[in-house]
Write a protein that binds this DNA or RNA. Structure first.
Length: 503
RNA sequence: GCCGCGUUCGUCUAGUUGGCCCAGGACGUAAGAUUUUCAUUCUUAAAAUCGCGGGUUCGAAUCCCGCACGCGGUACCA
């Protein structure tokens, strides 16, 4: 049984790269008929941000990524929050200690800092490893009675992993193949902090084992510490899960990891939901609040680093689940592309039913204090849907269906309202008043009998009419619009335009 | 610095066992068609000497080696 987990730390809003990691885990789990678990990694108490955990849960609900077990729903392997599992870790740390895989280290943060500065001065980098540990303040270097004395007197200490000297450790990565690193170059990572909490490295291994995780699908930034994790499994005598390290999501311009700053700078969200930072008070934009459809975000994200092996790009969640494969995950980082994101959004917006779009439009119409018959709103929605990408554009592109223009676009006026135009408009009013108010009759009277017969410029007349009725020279078929608005309303608008724009 | 990962059109990528690839699709861009306008839609085009340099081979984007560049890691953060 495949069991995967998404394990964010609740230090703020969920980054879109994290969302993609969760999505790949989810697709894999569902395809394999396995379980998807949400575990909160909050071993760093200093970085706790209130609301972050709730944010993460809400984001996944919005995106349609469902969990089988997790902090919010419980499950047979709980608790699913590491701070709630605190009591559990110590015994495993002791097990490592007893087996000689870990040791006490009493070096203070200040001492470590000084050491690093000292090395830096010589243009070297200090690393707490097999070559330096005997010169430090730990149970490997100190006499046994001294260690005991410090322990007894309650000196603060951490537990460090004791890397074996000069052994090659190979990580079998499902995406990259075998990656080998030598333990000599790896540092003795802290496993257990002086505050009584494990670090990520220890907690992660203990929890994955206890929760029977079979596949660890996580970001590439974890690859360098994968050998440590492999060694920990070995030290415990546990079977390690399979690993897959995902390529990073890069900023649209230049190189480097996609960050919140890039989003602010380039004007796109890097978070699924809007986020109000409780500390700084600043608000970060979210895909949901921007009007993105969750299925568009999911589809876009799925294709950033993975492909189905053919040319298909539009896929529902079910199709993604069916088609997903770790083999088709690419190795290189992917730059986020805003244009492509907008394209996905447009595609999915078009798939919305007329009624759904009408409901969105209706809300906006009502918010402008206007009541319109439902059928009319649906008709407008179905006509205008295809030229819209975000729900927020609805009112702006459709407002003239519900209210007369209050102003006329200056450039359009300059270009289209030629001298003598008010005379033509008066004629249009005359036609509207005398000719049967139906499409064919109006078309004949206006386009054929008046414009063509008098060798007038069709574009000029029709665009001025549009300007009068809409306020701009954009919109759907002019006669359809006239018919929808009604004779009286159209005449009123033309008259007002003649008065306002004049000649 | 050291360690690791990566490198195909501007961007996402196809290319998994070397020949069907003088490299295919999509987004974007440009042009055209359609429309009374805008948008949609449709058609077409430009766009990668497959990071560079060597090999191996009848034949390499695909295999090997070197180099360059980019990124990640190098915390009592995850």
């Amino acid at each position: 049984m495949v069991r995967v987990r998404f394990a964010p730390s609740p230090t703020g809003p969920l980054h879109i790269g994290g969302v993609r990691t969760a999505l790949y885990n989810y697709l894999f789990a569902r395809q394999q008929g396995g379980k998807m678990i949400l575990r909160i990694e909050d071993t760093d108490q200093t970085r706790f941000v209130p609301g972050a955990e709730q944010y993460i849960i809400e984001a996944f609900q919005w995106l349609g990524i469902e969990f089988d077990e997790g902090v919010h729903i419980g499950g047979p392997y709980g608790p699913y929050r590491q701070s709630d599992r605190k009591a559990l870790y110590r015994q495993y740390a002791d097990q490592l200690l007893a087996g000689g895989w870990a040791y006490y280290a009493f070096d203070t943060p200040e001492a470590l800092d000084a050491k690093r500065k000292e090395y830096e001065a010589e243009k070297k980098t200090f690393q707490y490893d097999c070559t330096t540990r005997l010169g430090m303040c730990n149970s490997l270097a100190l006499p046994a009675d001294e260690v005991q004395r410090r322990l007894d007197s309650g000196d603060p200490y951490v537990l460090r992993f004791r890397f074996p000297e000069n052994t090659d450790i190979t990580v079998h990565d499902l995406i990259r193949g075998d990656v080998t690193m030598n333990s000599r170059l790896l540092d003795d990572k802290v496993l257990f902090k002086s505050d009584g909490m494990p670090t990520y490295h220890l907690a992660n291994i203990v929890d994955d084992h206890l929760m029977e995780i079979t596949h660890v699908i996580r970001g590439e930034e974890w690859l360098p510490s994968a050998p440590l994790h492999i060694m920990l499994y070995e030290a415990f005598g546990w079977q390690a899960p399979q690993f897959a390290h995902l390529p990073l999501l890069l900023k649209p311009d230049g190189n480097g990891k996609l960050s919140k700053r890039d989003g602010d700078r380039l004007g796109f969200p890097v978070f699924p939901l809007e986020w109000h930072d409780p500390k700084s008070g600043e608000t970060s934009n979210g895909y949901r609040e921007q009007g993105y459809l969750p299925q568009a975000v999911v589809n876009m994200l799925a294709l950033l680093g993975w492909n189905p092996g053919n040319d298909q790009e539009l896929m529902t969640m079910d199709e993604l689940i069916r088609l997903f494969s770790i083999e088709h995950i690419s190795k290189n980082g992917a730059k986020f592309n805003l244009d492509k994101a907008r394209w996905f959004q447009h595609e999915y917006f078009q798939q919305l039913s007329d009624d759904t779009v009408a409901d969105m439009l209706d809300t906006q119409v009502k918010s402008h204090g206007i009541e319109a018959p439902h059928e009319y709103v649906v008709k407008v929605a179905s006509m205008m849907k295809e030229r819209i990408t975000f729900p927020g554009e609805l009112w702006d592109t459709c407002s003239y269906f519900f209210q007369a223009p209050t102003e006329y676009n200056e450039k359009d006026v300059a270009k289209r309202w030629q001298p003598g135009m008010e005379g033509h408009m008066a004629k249009v009013i005359e036609i509207l008043e005398t000719v049967p108010f139906e499409y064919d009759a109006l078309h004949q009277a206006l386009l054929e009998d008046y414009i063509k017969a008098n060798q007038l410029n069709t574009g000029a007349i029709m665009n001025s009419l549009r300007l009068a009725v809409v306020g701009r020279t954009v919109g759907p078929d002019m006669l359809t619009l006239v018919l929808m608005l009604g004779k009286d309303e159209v005449i009123r608008r033309i008259q007002r335009a003649i008065e306002t724009i004049g000649n």
